[in-house]
Design a protein around this nucleic acid. Structure first.
Lengths: 156, 156
DNA sequence: TATTGACCTCAACTATTGTTGAGGTTTTAT
DNA sequence: ATAAAACCTCAACAATAGTTGAGGTCAATA
């Protein structure tokens, strides 16, 4: 790993340095840039140079992705943020609060699903009309069109 | 909706009927068939006819997808199952038990992430070296390469 | 029987999230 | 000054999970 001299502490980072420090590939940083998720300055020779705040942006992107938020939405959220200064606690708080809510919804939904699975294993209700797994529109909460019960005759 | 006469109760289903009852598109059923997730018999005229058990298979597929399992893995799991008879409680139990474990892992991981988000909002630790969000390889538990601390100088 | 709606195949296309490679340029180190 | 390492763009490719459309066939109903 490169030894960073004190005199260089505020130097802008090359794409390779950002890749190494953030743990994402150079190609991914290029890709994020085309998507407007991060931005770079260029040298006279057209090479990217990143303000060090980009590391935090990339960290935020990766965290948001882990919650299941697509890049397009992450971009929407990040676009209201300044990219010319490091994020403040308040900036981050606004973002994470909305993401936390989505994350909670996902968790709740997955837990409900898990509980259905569990009960369907234990009780043999697969044979019954009431089993939520036989009525996917209840359990899966898909769009439109109310519940359509499945037929009796595909039971074990 | 078609009124099903008693005499037809065990008739095989057309692709359109399966689509309507299961809530997935005809094209999706074709697609699942190419992936080996479901199977059909054919009429002399080459049209698909499904045993009614296909409805349960499709329901299972959709449930598994909701847990975040990719189709390839769903196919692996389903491939050990008979497709010539309806699933038994035991068949389903074997499947769902392994999937429930994966589901639990996902839930646990998302909850941990949520807790990090929460604490980072509350405590302002974004400014601190210890913040898990500043050290994505801890929080994100990505492969290889131990923790690489981010620099001091991108703090707010 | 004729017609209409449902069905068939196959290829191409969509969107997401990147990766890979070719061909050429810049920066850094010696 | 030169060579190596890192960088550049652009296009193509990859995997996942399907959807759409063209061109043609089948089957149920009037």
């Amino acid at each position: 790993m490169t030894i960073v001299k004190n005199t260089e502490l505020r130097r802008e980072l090359t794409v390779g340095e950002v890749a190494e420090r953030s743990g994402v590939a150079v190609s991914t940083l290029h890709f994020y840039e085309t998507k407007g998720l991060i931005r770079s300055n260029r040298t006279r020779g057209n090479q990217r140079r990143y303000p060090r705040g980009v590391l935090r942006r990339v960290a935020v992107i990766k965290v948001a992705q882990r919650t299941g938020i697509p890049l397009s939405e992450i971009q929407d959220a990040l676009s209201v943020l300044p990219d010319d200064r490091p994020l403040t606690v308040e900036d981050w708080g606004r973002l994470s609060e909305s993401w936390r809510e989505q994350l909670n919804e996902r968790i709740t939904s997955l837990m409900a699903l898990r509980d259905h699975l569990t009960s369907c294993i234990g009780c043999g209700c697969l044979s019954l009309r009431e089993c939520p797994l036989r009525n996917p529109h209840d359990v899966l909460s898909m769009e439109g069109a109310g519940p359509r019960l499945m037929d009796e005759d595909s039971r074990p």
